[in-house]
Design a protein around this nucleic acid. Structure first.
Lengths: 151, 151
DNA sequence: CGCAATTCAATTGCGCGCAATTGATTCGGA
DNA sequence: TCCGAATCAATTGCGCGCAATTGAATTGCG
């Protein structure tokens, strides 16, 4: 049970990552609740504001989420009037997600969020950039490791 | 919609953190499923292996989780025979969590996990240490920001 | 063309996370 | 001592995440 025990909570890399990710979501919550959004819903909008008409599959590849998560989430956003879900004409297996005018309008209200968060974090631009790069690198290593390498 | 748009997904610090945390959980999953554990259950055991008889409140302060999360989680672990939940004698409001012999025995099987993860990550010790420190710092900033500072 | 394999989204089931509330217990000031 | 405030775990309700399955549509191989 010594402090340099590999099973000590304080020595884990995983735990700060886990805690920080949840704290990040909570830091966004008050900003997003004003727009009636949850954090994953905000991520969906970030994608659609860049690529309107994205498919569910494409959305999943961008956000690393599957249809089991996205389908009900998108249905809730559709019920809120933010998006429209439409079977693709070219390929009836896929479903495309389109912003409604309300969903597009929300973008203007969201423009203040990044700077509000930057302020909360109190990191310099280069600190934030370096940290993002480091975490991205960590993610890339991790996202390799849990794929079935056979076949 | 340019690449230096503050609302571009690629410019967010939050998203890699969110994705990396989930990828980390998934990287642990195959190692933990052999022990019949989920990732948060593993964290609970890390605490108990250090401090057997911890209260629910204390557990929550260590893991930054509340009773709404911990109570059902601990009940599942009790049903698995890993822990015992017991109203405290000194203060009947609180509940103490004790390892069963099975819960203690699981520690031996878990000793290989940290090195298995270190291998998966492929980071040097100092890279991992620095990243952990950076993320901890990020967490500390974040955990301040969402507390009600009034009163 | 014909049909098996593949690709999609949707569904099911379950375990978190967390806000909000409830109810029991303890604390602390008058 | 009494009683209101505070503390604690449990509960309720809801939105993720994700593994596994289902069913429809498409692809591609013979």
């Amino acid at each position: 049970m010594s402090m340099d025990d590999p099973l000590s909570l304080d020595r884990q890399l995983c735990f700060p990552l886990y805690a920080a990710a949840r704290a990040m979501t909570q830091a966004y919550a008050p900003l997003l609740s004003r727009l009636g959004l949850t954090y994953p819903q905000y991520l969906v909008l970030l994608v659609l504001w860049e690529t309107d008409g994205e498919t569910v599959k494409g959305m999943g590849e961008r956000l690393y989420l599957d249809s089991g998560t996205l389908t009900p989430l998108l249905k809730r956003m559709e019920a809120q009037g933010l998006v429209r879900r439409e079977r693709s004409a070219e390929d009836a297996r896929s479903v495309r997600i389109y912003l409604t005018s309300e969903g597009r309008a929300l973008r203007r209200k969201a423009t203040s969020i990044p700077e509000a968060m930057a302020c909360k974090l109190g990191l310099t631009l280069q600190e934030a950039t370096r940290l993002r790069r480091d975490i991205q690198r960590l993610f890339e290593v991790l996202s390799q490791s849990h794929v079935d390498s056979s076949k």
